[in-house]
Amino acid sequence: MPQPILRVEDVVKRFGGIIAVNHMSMEVYKNEILGLIGPNGAGKTTLFNCITGVYKPEEGRIIFQNEDITGLPPHVIIQKGIARTWQKVRPFKKLTVLEAVTVGALLRIPDVDEARETAKEILEFIGIDKSRWNRLGSEITLIEHKLVDLARALATRPKLILLDEVAAGLRPHEMDELAKVLLKVREEYKLTLIVVEHVMRFVMGLSERIVVMHEGKKIAEGRPEEVANNPRVVEAYLGTKPL
């Protein structure tokens, strides 16, 4: 059995009366791509927010590389090596694409000029056209911003990256492009990925393993084809979104 890089143990997060994450547990193994799926409101984003320190879970523990990181603030969590992208984009509107990615690179490279060089390498690697590097955050498209968000996160040199609906809004051929980029990124940076995504074709094709969440809990787990035929999963999705 390979060592898990991340362990979520019995995590609970409430918002008033709503239990967004309800005794959720899962393990993520080094270098894998894990798909995290579930209908709207299942608690996927909230779980990401608990892992990255945006929220402090009321119960449970989060263990990263054998270290308890529960409740640490986001700027410390990323230092440990967990980066994330945002479902609802959070652009730096008055910074250029290159500057935004440089902000990420500065975490490990304190020298601005060197950080800029690293940022350029990452932008090139992700495949953002050079002609866009000097555009402001307010001038780029939503899709471009999703890629910048990814580049920004990668620039911090994470070991684990949580992607919250990066492919949403992409056209089919763009999704294929992105899937290739993510596989390339995993090789190059020796990354582990958790991918939250509603587009089944994308997440099923990309992931080696799938965890399904529903009403804050894990209801299924396994290889993509196993999960797709699991009656509990089909039931959870019925009346929400076709699988």
């Binding site: 700027h75 990323i78 230092q79 959070r90 652009p91 730096f92 008055k94 910074l95 902000v103 911090t156």
Partner: peptide, 16 residues
């Protein structure tokens, strides 16, 4: 600049 633009995104990139 990152803090001015979006504090949460800034913090998530490692900025105290």
């Amino acid at each position: 600049a990152a803090i001015r633009e979006d504090e949460l995104a800034a913090e998530a990139l490692g900025i105290d």
